[in-house]
Write a protein that binds this DNA or RNA. Structure first.
Length: 214
DNA sequence: AACCGTCGCAACCGCCGAATT
DNA sequence: CAATTCGGCGGTTGCGACGGT
């Protein structure tokens, strides 16, 4: 067990960043909990991982979100709900934290969404039961996405796809009170507008059941 | 210039499932 | 097979920056 008291909190210093980057350069990513032991960093493994993924990783894009990125996020959010890691995996260079923050600060306002708990998810679960919408992964032909860009995409995609896919399938009910979602209703044409790199991983899902809801 | 409210982002927390022992 | 550890996720918080008065 880790002794909680010896872990530093708060903003990372330049020196801590350097230590973490040096360690990853030599040993690679992973084994986050051992980094503290081997480097003397007074940070827990989780903190190291977050710092690397959200800030230090060379693949992370900084700066404002472009119109295209925002549009993509909006469409993906409509499709997947608050599955930030899945969404981020399809927005090159952006992390789940960035996407989540951007959604909560900019896009919510832009779309006139009141902040709330996972309303979609909850209505979804009841609706999926009501409509006998079963897990996509239980279908014989189901395969997880094979070339997702996110580091843990395959795992994430298989983790709870029934929820995300059912969210998509039953957004209709969930949107009755939100202008934004009804205005961003996905039609087949909408999906055609999605970029190929986005749709490629999603193609492995069976969306047939979803079309029936449109 | 000082105060105050709002905003945006980095980081933390709690939970969960997978992997390991 | 059970217990423990690890990695990952989404939600939330804390705080500095900024703008308005």
């Amino acid at each position: 067990m880790e002794s909680k008291n010896e872990h530093r909190k708060g903003p990372w210093t330049v020196e801590e960043d350097r230590i973490l980057m040096d360690h990853i350069r030599v040993h690679g990513k992973g084994k986050w909990n051992r980094i503290a032991k081997t480097t003397g960093l007074k940070r827990c493994g989780k903190s190291c991982r977050l710092r690397w993924i959200n800030y230090l990783s060379p693949g992370v894009k900084r700066g404002d979100f472009s119109e295209e990125e925002e549009d993509l996020i909006i469409r993906l959010h409509n499709l997947l709900g608050n599955r930030w890691s899945l969404i981020a995996g399809r927005v090159p260079g952006r992390t789940d934290n960035q996407v989540k923050n951007h959604w909560n600060t900019h896009l919510c306002k832009k779309l006139g969404i009141k902040k709330g708990k996972t309303r979609i998810g909850s209505s979804l679960q009841s609706l999926s039961k009501k409509n006998n919408l079963t897990s996509v992964s239980s279908e014989p032909n189901f395969e997880p996405p094979s070339n997702c860009s996110g580091e843990t995409e395959a795992k994430t995609a298989t983790k709870d796809d029934s929820q995300s896919m059912c969210r998509f399938a039953s957004t209709q009910e969930a949107t009755t009170e939100d202008n934004y979602e009804s205005s961003f209703w996905l039609s087949k044409d909408d999906l055609n507008l999605l970029t190929p790199f986005l749709m490629e991983p999603l193609n492995s899902y069976s969306l047939d059941f979803a079309w029936g809801c449109l």
